[in-house]
């Protein structure tokens, strides 16, 4: 059986308004538009998603902290572009957007990221800004509103604790009377 699950896209989500996008996981899709829709279905089923970024997996370069130490050498001036820099802060962290730098290649982007965003990063990811897909403000309605109308996806919707307390109280009461 030959089958293709289509190209992979890495997905970042904004979990609270104003917070930087953090890495969520990946989806497979045949094109950019479907990647964003799949990302919404997989990562925005609940109302705590306020923005999505997606990159084709191969556009992200990854360097460990050790690799980042040796990566950056000043070389011949070359054409530069904007790179987005992500770092996993501490061993329990999640890759999180830190900021943008101008660089001629991923190693230079990591090196510049390192000098700007400090030493606590244990894993670096960089990707050219031109490769980023992002939800725009006008997409917020169709992308994120549907999750807000589904309060039943939240455990607090079910009065189970209250019902269980009532049952336990009734049982104790019955035992005391008998």
């Amino acid at each position: 059986m030959t089958d293709s699950q289509l190209p992979r896209y890495e997905i970042f989500i904004v979990e609270r308004p104003g917070r930087p996008p953090t890495y969520a996981g990946s989806v497979h899709a045949s094109d950019d538009e479907l990647a964003m829709l799949n990302a919404r279905d997989v990562f925005a089923r609940r109302p705590d998603c306020h923005g999505l970024w997606a990159f084709r997996a191969e556009t992200i370069s990854s360097r460990t902290a050790d690799e980042a130490l040796s990566a950056f050498e000043e070389t011949e001036p070359a054409p530069r572009e904007r790179y987005l820099v992500f770092g996993k802060l501490g061993h329990k962290g999640v890759p999180t957007f830190l900021g943008a730098v101008e660089a001629s290649d991923p190693d230079e982007a990591v090196g510049r990221g390192r000098s700007l965003y400090g030493q606590d990063v244990v894993l670096w990811w960089v990707a050219p800004e031109r490769c980023r897909l992002a939800t725009a403000a006008e997409d917020a309605g169709p992308m994120f509103e549907p999750a807000k109308g589904k309060p039943f996806r939240d455990q607090a919707f079910y009065p189970v604790e209250t019902l269980m307390r009532q049952l336990r109280r009734a049982r104790t009461h019955k035992q005391e009377r008998s």
Partner: peptide, 15 residues
């Protein structure tokens, strides 16, 4: 985080 909803909806049906 999401599965607590699954448990609770099931318990509600049973209750």
């Amino acid at each position: 985080a999401e599965e607590n909803f699954h448990r609770k909806q099931g318990m509600e049906i049973v209750l």
